[in-house]
């Protein structure tokens, strides 16, 4: 195996690793938006997932418990959002930014209180050894050239995410439930006439989205990094929002977009480290560019992608229209 081949394999693996939380949150957001609710606050929900997973894992010493806690935290955030937007008829976009602020504030607050508490007790705030998740290579399969390391040497949640994608795709494509979810966002009055409770349906979709975002947060804090930092999601939630539009509300498109951003992200990180380590001259030339430009890249790419793609991409019609509709 040549060095460049190694590099490509490594980058691809990192791309999937980095894309997993975005895919997870994206699947949830897709379901939510199809049902007619756009949640700008996934960033905040993910942060709550991060902190819940981190602190609960730290206290309980079990990563799984932390993951469940993150899912629960995500669902609680979703309930608040649903209460405001679905039942309380709040404007989804502004309420979404409020949810973001809530996530940032609450996670920062919990983090500081957790630190104080652990220090008072004389414990470290780092995760107990072995409680976080590490990569789970799947026996035999991970030895396949290229495909093995890329697809079968990932974190457990990555496999779950991929399975979830298949399930959600199947549900949306091949079941009556999928029809209902689509109709909730496209013609809620048709659902209502069919006896489907629109607000309940939307709330359940949001709950699913919240669980996904919470799990995505857990992935960031107790799998990928084993650390928590304030605002550690760094805008990934917002990129997911852009990607749902970019993928035209279709699952394959969203996953493709997430993988692309994962690739840019891993490239960016590689380039940042290459500044100090690489002997490769081509890479070295790039290190003269300030690394912030690489950090900026995903966001710029998202804007450019939207600018190219969002024409002729009608989303669900009833996004940000509370049910029952009031004519204004």
């Amino acid at each position: 195996m040549t060095a460049s081949h190694n590099m490509i394999t490594f980058l691809s693996r990192q791309a999937l690793t980095a894309a997993t939380p975005m895919i997870l949150a994206g699947v949830g957001e897709l379901v939510g938006e199809l049902s007619g609710v756009i949640n700008i606050g996934i960033e905040g929900t993910m942060l709550m997932g991060c902190i819940a997973a981190y602190t609960v894992t730290g206290v309980s010493n079990h990563g799984t418990v932390g993951l469940l806690a993150a899912i629960a935290a995500g669902m609680v955030m979703a309930m608040i959002f649903a209460a405001a937007c679905v039942w309380g008829r709040a404007d989804q976009i502004v309420a979404g930014t409020a949810m973001d602020l809530l996530g940032v504030g609450l996670s920062g607050m919990v983090w500081m209180m957790y630190q104080n508490w652990r220090e008072n007790l004389g414990f470290s705030t780092a995760l107990p050894h072995g409680s976080g998740f590490s990569r789970v290579p799947i026996p035999l399969l991970h030895q396949i050239a290229f495909l093995g390391p890329v697809f079968f040497d990932q974190y457990a949640l990555c496999y779950i995410t991929l399975c979830l994608c298949v399930v959600v795709w199947w549900v949306l494509r091949h079941t009556r439930l999928g029809l209902i979810i689509g109709a909730l966002g496209d013609a809620p009055e048709a659902c209502h006439a069919a006896g489907v409770r629109v607000r309940m349906g939307r709330s359940l979709c949001l709950l699913f989205a919240g669980a996904c975002s919470g799990a995505a947060g857990a992935y960031l804090s107790i799998m990928q990094t084993h650390a928590f930092a304030t605002n550690m999601t760094g805008g990934q939630g917002f990129v997911v929002l852009a990607l749902v539009i970019f993928g035209r509300w279709k699952l394959p498109g969203i996953i493709g977009g997430c993988l692309f951003f994962g690739l840019i992200n891993s490239l960016q990180q590689t380039l940042q480290t290459a500044r100090y380590t690489s002997q490769n001259t081509a890479l070295h030339a790039l290190t003269h560019v300030p690394f912030q430009f690489f950090q900026m890249l995903p966001y710029l790419a998202a804007i450019v992608a939207l600018a190219i793609m969002s024409r002729k991409a009608p989303g669900p019609r009833y996004i940000n229209v509370p049910w029952p509709e009031v004519k204004t």
Binding site: R176, L179, A183, E189, A190, A194
Partner: peptide, 22 residues
């Protein structure tokens, strides 16, 4: 009360279907 971008059959299933799956 029709979902315009769904097919005729899908509209009928949406309204008259009993289970969530098929």
């Amino acid at each position: 009360k029709l979902v315009e971008n769904q097919s005729v059959l899908e509209n009928i299933v949406l309204a008259a279907g009993k289970s969530l799956l098929p």
